[in-house]
């Protein structure tokens, strides 16, 4: 496609398989995508589709035991798969940082939030105590925490969920990473707070010239915040493309089902929702066909026997994995 050096992140044929008591569990399978600089990509999928495993694998955060990672993750030219802990540690914070879903578990409850930001600055950037404190307060201000000087001394438990998530973002931004991985950064927050945090991420992305991977199960979150989205199902990409194309011209039945089954504010009361029967497959018992076939109303014999690979759709950069793709000329009626 475009010049390789243009891309900040290139993921190629990435698979993560856990060895479990029930056999190998392919949580992430054959995933390829890339991400330009200053771009936001959304990763959407239902619970268990492998979003968290994928983002952790990209960061090189998988535990060393009982897991095998194959493929390649090139982060600004650095190969993450198989890299040593030391090497990855040098990249964490400066190249890539992560915002986790639950701010309470990613903050140390018995340490003042200021100290937690300081830590990163002093260890990673070798700042002096005063400099680190000044920068920490600057960061708190950057993420929109009112009266940052006082809050510098607060403990995580004294902050609301939204404030905590801002602190987590401040910590992630401490060493000015080029890529921010946000795993469900707003799940569990209220809509008004969610809007604040998403706006903040957007604004910071522009201001600091970062790229963002926004992982979420909520299609609403990615609709207006991303330039491209990846739809995952059972550990694989089933559709990828520009956000607008995926929403308006999706070709894969699962994407459609996902869009149609989410209730909409603009629906009239008592609108009957379109549902997908059943629920996502057990990753230990995947069949060789399309993983969506058992729930798909378009499924044919071929779907049950052979797995569809990603194929290009009409729009550039848009591809989908389906043997019986939905027609293209449906206009916008389905969205």
């Amino acid at each position: 496609m475009t010049d390789v050096s243009e891309k900040l992140l290139i993921v190629e044929d990435l698979s993560t398989t856990f060895a479990t008591a029930g056999g190998p569990l392919p949580a992430v399978a054959n995933i390829s995508f890339d991400l330009g600089r200053n771009e936001t990509i959304g990763i959407v999928g239902e619970s268990g589709s492998g979003k968290t495993v994928l983002s952790r694998t990209i960061m090189g955060l998988q535990p060393r035991t009982n897991v095998s990672v194959t493929g390649s993750v090139l982060l600004d030219g650095n190969e993450m798969v198989g890299a040593s802990e030391d090497f990855k540690r040098r990249l964490w914070g400066t190249e890539v940082a992560m915002v986790f879903q639950d701010p309470m578990t990613s903050l140390n409850p018995v340490m003042r939030i200021g100290k937690q930001i300081d830590e990163a600055l002093r260890v990673r950037l070798g700042m002096s105590k005063q400099d680190a404190k000044a920068r920490a307060i600057e960061l708190l201000e950057l993420v929109g925490i009112p009266s940052p000087v006082q809050r510098y001394k607060a403990y995580p438990g004294q902050l609301s969920g939204g404030m905590r998530q801002r602190v987590v973002i401040a910590i992630a931004l401490a060493c000015s990473p080029k890529l921010l991985m946000a795993d469900e950064p707003t799940t569990g927050l209220d809509v008004t707070i969610q809007a604040q945090i998403l706006n903040l991420l957007d604004e910071l992305k522009e201001r600091l010239h970062m790229s963002v991977v926004l992982v979420t199960h909520d299609l609403g979150v990615v609709a207006t915040r991303t330039s491209r989205i990846v739809v995952m199902y059972a550990g694989r990409i089933v559709e990828i493309g520009a956000t607008r194309d995926v929403f308006a011209n999706h070709r894969m039945p699962y994407t459609r089902a996902l869009l149609e089954s989410s209730p909409k504010v603009s629906n009239a009361s008592h609108t009957r929702l379109i549902t997908i029967p059943g629920r996502p497959p057990n990753l230990l018992k995947l069949t060789q066909g399309c993983s969506f076939a058992p729930r798909c109303s378009y499924a044919t014999d071929k779907c049950h026997q052979e797995r569809p690979e990603l194929q290009a759709a009409d729009q550039p950069g848009h591809s989908f994995a389906c043997w019986n793709p939905l027609p293209t000329t449906r206009g916008d009626s389905a969205t």
Binding site: A21, G22, T275, P277, G278, R279, P281, N282, P294, R295
Partner: peptide
């Protein structure tokens, strides 16, 4: 809706 109950194995 037809339900494809995927059982949680009692392992």
């Amino acid at each position: 809706e037809e339900m494809a109950l995927v059982e949680r194995p009692e392992k």
